[in-house]
Computed example of a mutant assay.
Amino acid sequence: MADKTFDLILIGGGQSALACAFFLRRKEIDYIILDDQETCGGSWKQTWESLTLFSPPEHSSLPGWQMPESEGEFPTKEETIDYLCQYEDRYDFPIQRPVKVKSIDKKEGMFTLETTEGQFNSKTVISATGTYKNPFIPEIPGRDKFEGKQLHSSDYRSPEEFKDKKIVIVGEGNSGAQILAEISKVAKTFWSTKEEPQFLPDDVDGRVLFDMASAKYYAEKKGEKYDSTKFNLGNIVMVPSVKEARERDVLHSQGQIQSITKEGVVWEDGSCQKVDVIIWCTGFGYSTGFLENLVSIDHKGKIPTDKTKAKETDGLWLVGYGGWTGFASATLIGVGRYAKQTIKEVSEYLKD
Results as ranks from 00 to 15, higher is better:
A2P: 00
L8Q: 03
L8E: 01
Q15Y: 01
Q15T: 03
A17H: 02
F22G: 02
R25L: 11
R26S: 05
T39V: 13
T39I: 13
G42L: 13
T47V: 15
L51S: 02
T52Q: 10
H59D: 02
S60I: 06
S60N: 09
S61I: 08
L62Q: 04
L62M: 05
P63S: 04
W65V: 04
W65E: 04
S70T: 15
F74E: 11
T76E: 06
E79V: 14
D82I: 15
E88K: 09
R90V: 11
Q96V: 15
V101M: 02
K102V: 12
S103D: 07
K107T: 12
E108H: 08
E114A: 10
T115L: 07
Q119M: 14
F120W: 14
K123Q: 14
V125S: 03
G130E: 10
T131H: 12
P135W: 14
P138Q: 10
R143T: 13
R143K: 15
G148S: 10
K149C: 11
D155A: 15
Y156V: 13
E161D: 08
K163C: 11
K166H: 11
I169H: 03
V170F: 05
E172F: 09
N174F: 07
I179Y: 00
L180T: 07
I183T: 06
A187L: 08
T189P: 00
E195F: 09
E195P: 00
Q198V: 12
L200N: 04
P201V: 11
D203I: 14
V208M: 05
K222H: 05
K225A: 06
Y226C: 03
F231T: 05
N232Q: 07
N235G: 01
V237W: 02
M238Q: 13
M238H: 06
P240T: 14
S241A: 12
V242A: 07
L251P: 00
L251W: 07
S253P: 02
G255A: 06
Q256C: 03
I257A: 00
G264F: 04
W267V: 07
Q273R: 15
D276K: 10
I279V: 13
T282P: 00
S287E: 09
G289A: 12
L291D: 01
E292K: 15
E292R: 15
E292D: 11
L294K: 04
L294C: 03
V295Y: 01
K302T: 12
K311Y: 01
E312N: 02
T313Q: 12
W317R: 09
G320D: 06
Y321H: 14
W324K: 15
G326S: 11
A328Y: 14
S329V: 13
Y338C: 08
K344H: 11
V346H: 09
E348K: 15
Y349V: 14
